[in-house]
Design a protein around this nucleic acid. Structure first.
Lengths: 111, 111
DNA sequence: TCAATTAATCGTAATATTGCAATAAATAAA
DNA sequence: TTTATTTATTGCAATATTACGATTAATTGA
């Protein structure tokens, strides 16, 4: 075994898990926070910012990109990265559904 | 390699990544959604609900528990699980910080 | 005491992730 | 064209995750 049984869950659960999983690493949280601060930057800036080799940063960027959490645009020899508002909005809405429901209950039915 | 360089990030980044990572699997999303629906339940209920063996469900519950996303209380021979409001509030606040900041910018500075 | 019930743990196999050095690819500048 | 510059990719090793059967542990009920 070792592989997730992807065909057993709803599309919604898979999509949410994919986005959330891409965020579940401190380096990628750090990249997101940095992008939030500087709006947009190139890979090299992130390499300077994080304690990771260029190849590793590139890999983390690829994961964020494949989850559509960031997008990149070629700009000469560099690539300009920024957060992808669309996916963040989607994530926000899905999580709000959970947060709101939970807040409404206010632990009333907890063990 | 293979291990995350945990000593290179802020406490905040590590804590956030830990919580988010625990959510980054469709089975655990499904467990959370189920708990949100039924308020509280025992492990066996989740085993009936998900396409996974008891040992696997137990493992997922342990991960959610170690991230404090759920809590369990012994009730006879069973254990009653429910969502841990405290951690969900914390997660909500941290993510709102990101969502709000990003919404305020409204893609104005994106590439 | 002895089954039954429930969940955790152990052991194992398959797969995925993390990280890096080395290299390749693509563009810009000289 | 040649040389920088910048990023992606490849190959590899170490580690982590996912999943399950089998077993163990703890409690309840007969």
């Amino acid at each position: 075994m070792g592989a997730t049984k992807t065909d057993q869950y709803t599309e919604r659960q898979l999509r949410l898990a994919t986005i959330i999983k891409a965020l579940g690493h401190p380096a990628r949280i750090a990249i997101v926070e940095y992008l939030l601060k500087v709006d947009s930057c190139i890979c090299g800036d992130i390499v300077d910012e994080l304690p990771l080799a260029q190849a590793t940063v590139s890999q983390h960027l690829r994961e964020l990109k494949s989850a559509n959490l960031i997008k990149g645009e070629i700009e000469g020899t560099a690539i300009c990265y920024c957060l992808n508002q669309e996916t963040w909005s989607l994530l926000n809405e899905e999580l709000q559904l959970i947060f709101k429901t939970l807040q409404a209950k206010n632990n009333s039915a907890c063990c």
